[in-house]
């Protein structure tokens, strides 16, 4: 890994930490908070690409695990990895990877702005919603014994918020691509 890639990965992990400073919104009926940190995860994938994006998220989770209060609301420690919403947290890594992989395939430099934004949106939604929520639901159902169908129903409450985040991620990714392109190009 080149030093620049190492630094980009670390800086993005730091951006994800900073996004967590915005206080999370608690919805009463399901034990998962809504926070801008998952927006940071989508951004890591779509801006840095699959490998560096997933590594940035992994680094962020590593710092949380060793007891630094980097998660939204100043949380951290090993407890968050066994709590009911832990699947969403661990799912961040494959989420960023998939978002990056899809962006690398769908988005190219010569395309129109609209197509690039659409590509980034699909990528962010596939990674940040489909993959992350899938892992979230599996762990929620398993750890609490509430069963898949109820976990799925509860999860639906977070889909609209995350669709909004995927849209923000897509617009931001396109702007960053214009200002400072980093995404590895694949043909």
């Amino acid at each position: 890994m080149k030093t620049r890639d190492l630094v980009l990965t670390a800086l993005f992990a730091a951006i994800i930490v900073v996004l967590g400073v915005i206080p999370p919104v608690q919805l009463g009926f399901i034990p998962v908070p809504i926070h801008a940190q998952s927006l940071g995860v989508m951004l890591a994938g779509v801006i840095l690409g699959a490998k560096r994006g997933a590594l940035a998220v992994l680094l962020f989770l590593l710092l949380a695990a060793i007891g630094l209060p980097v998660l939204s609301g100043g949380r951290g420690g090993l407890g968050v990895f066994v709590a009911p919403p832990a699947g969403y947290l661990v799912g961040f890594v494959p989420a960023a990877y998939v978002a990056g992989l899809v962006s690398e395939r769908l988005v190219r430099a010569g395309q129109s702005g609209g197509r690039q934004i659409a590509g980034f949106f699909v990528a962010a939604a596939l990674g940040g919603i489909v993959i992350d929520h899938l892992l979230g639901i599996v762990w929620l159902a398993q750890s609490t014994g509430m069963g898949f169908s109820k976990a799925f129903l509860g999860d639906l409450a977070f889909v609209p918020g995350d669709v909004l985040k995927a849209a923000i991620a897509a617009l931001a990714a396109r702007a960053v691509m214009v200002g400072y392109p980093l995404l590895p190009q694949r043909v």
Binding site: V7, I15, V18, I47, I168, A172, V176, Y180
Partner: peptide, 21 residues
């Protein structure tokens, strides 16, 4: 607003990568 703050924040931060590296 979220987006208007986020874009310069990310671009300025990532631009530092070159000098840090």
């Amino acid at each position: 607003r979220a987006l208007a703050t986020l874009m310069p924040l990310i671009i300025l931060t990532l631009r530092d990568a070159d000098s840090i590296a």
